[in-house]
Design a protein around this nucleic acid. Structure first.
Lengths: 340, 340
DNA sequence: TTGAAAGCGCTAACAA
DNA sequence: TTGTTAGCGCTTTCAA
């Protein structure tokens, strides 16, 4: 079923059929109706490739997400999907499994397929890769920190400040031996969180204990393993653990329970992300509320702006607010009184 | 950058360049190397649309998932992604938000784009829609129950049997007032689970109390709301709640806690899916272990078989095992002694 | 082993 | 308002 057949059965030329589809106002109402009727009747759908060959616009964007296991990324994806969909774009969701090579391959596939733009979430790409995409003439937006300091539109939060605030809160709760469990990805964000952690301790006059900085895979299991290490430190065991993601924090909580210790009482836990299940934990997880959905929304809007603006956008950086979400897992303010 | 330029700079015809790309063995080694070198040097990539126009094969499959909020579907998606990726296919992940209309629109978009096949997960589509896809000559596989009884390859579990087993286990634990919280989606699967629930009660000689069957949105919040209704029944309050998904079960657990009741002790909870976080709940959730990842794997394999088989596949139905995952939330066997 | 040219299905410039 | 026709970039048949 192609445009020729429609033309023939409607008794018009292919050009007219094409016009009915693309510029209906330029064709006489009677002809238009007739052609439309035939199109409907025969269930004709223009060939996507032939169309693309002429337009070179696909109304498709690519969304690269590090992991499907982490609900945090899924919340971002939800925001992107929502905007893209409401503006008539289709989203190609690609899971990079925190693997740079896979990320590169996906990007190449996407560009080959002439997608209109790409959103990279917490990308592991080098600056050169990011420049390369730009060179290939594909619109591009970043969500979350990235290695490059390229002039690419970006949406993010202040990871450094948020981590600093989080650790300060643990200090305010009376905790003194504060450890940190950080994921091996996303690298840039975690580095900033480490800096925030160190600064908070320094400001409070505490030394940095390198044994208190444990890295593992950014999963529940990773958090578990890291926490077991910390809890095995005997008398030096920390009384609070700051995790760089809620997923890690879940693993930390599990490890605390398995060590027959009490969460909050014996060891406080602070997460990062505020994914939906984090307040179903027992005790409810205190965490940094990262506006994941809104980051997706903003990122998608930004990308569509870039795509639809003729001359491109000079520069754009959106920094969203991350607030502390204080719940039960980090111990109570009351404890401060016990200590002082 | 197109094939013509490569031809010109290599001093050959476009036909030769095309051959180098598609049937390298048919071109003289020397010519081949020369052309390849130029292609590499100039970073030439064949135009996706022009290619598709000739081949009508996109190496792309569509995956329709009801919700991004439910990790259960994400685990299925992971399996599909894994297989598709390893066989060189790209997956277009579409979130239907449990909305049939959106599902239909996505399918149309996918077919328009000439994807090679579609996987529908817990689809809400009517039989006629499913037939329609088949008619449009697009390979199709279902994961989970569906309304139609069409001869479409399908991967599923025995929901009826699994629910029956689950409720029987609650009975064995000594619970007598067993309620059921079921999601409004996916419809077909939940209907089967309801049947399994009813049969188990009937076999045990208990009447069906329609007040004990509460429907709500298949989310944590839905589970919470439904459970609050059940717990507000005063003396008639159930001593066990079977939820049709872990997400619902999480909401149920939250509601029990908020009612100052004890999970397992006062009200047992049984989930369905065994998503990864279900054993992080306190107490750990007893649930039906649905082999989500494996369902994704099998579904993808099936679809690729259909795509790559010349004359199509007559029929195929894969039924995977679902086992009870007994943890703490449904009360202990010991209670049986207290009661008898 | 290679090249010329037709054709995939569509859009749009140009002509009528 | 409509039709004719030249491309879009590629693959492939046919001929050399």
């Amino acid at each position: 079923m192609n445009i020729k057949e429609i033309a023939k059965t409607s008794g018009v030329s292919v050009a007219t059929v094409s016009r009915v589809l693309n510029h209906p106002e330029t064709v006489a109402p009677k002809t238009r109706e007739k052609v439309l009727a035939i199109i409907n009747e025969l269930g004709y759908k223009p060939n996507w490739f032939a169309r693309g060959l002429n337009f070179n616009k696909t109304d498709t964007i690519g969304l690269l997400i590090p992991s499907i296991q982490n609900p945090a990324y899924m919340e971002v994806a939800e925001g992107v999907e929502y905007i893209a969909n409401s503006k008539g774009y289709t989203t190609l969701l690609c899971i990079t499994e925190e693997d740079v090579e896979k990320e590169r391959r996906y990007i190449q596939t996407l560009i080959d397929r002439r997608i209109d733009g790409i959103i990279l979430v917490s990308s592991l790409l080098e600056d050169s890769d990011i420049q390369e995409i730009k060179k290939q003439n594909t619109a591009e937006v970043l969500i979350g920190e990235n290695k490059g300091n390229s002039k690419i539109p970006i949406v993010r939060i202040d990871c450094f400040g948020a981590a600093h605030k989080a650790v300060k809160h643990l200090l305010n709760c009376g905790h003194r031996k504060i450890a940190m469990v950080y994921g091996s990805t996303p690298i840039m964000e975690n580095n900033l969180k480490i800096k925030g952690y160190k600064l908070a301790l320094k400001e409070a006059g505490f030394p940095i204990n390198e044994d208190y900085l444990v890295e593992d895979e950014n999963t529940i299991e990773g958090g578990y393993i890291a926490a077991r290490k910390l809890l095995g430190l005997g008398d030096d065991r920390p009384d609070a653990i700051f995790a760089t993601s809620d997923l890690l924090a879940f693993g930390v909580m599990d490890a605390i329970r398995d060590s027959n210790l009490s969460i909050a009482e014996d060891v406080a836990v602070m997460g990062f992300d505020n994914i939906r299940v984090s307040n179903l934990m027992v005790p409810k997880l205190t965490t940094v509320d990262k506006p994941l959905y809104r980051m997706g929304i903003s990122g998608a809007r930004l990308l569509l702006d870039v795509i639809e603006s003729e001359d491109g956008i000079a520069m754009s950086e959106i920094i969203l607010q991350a607030k502390l979400k204080i719940r039960k897992s980090c111990g109570h303010k009351e404890r401060i009184k016990e200590i002082f």
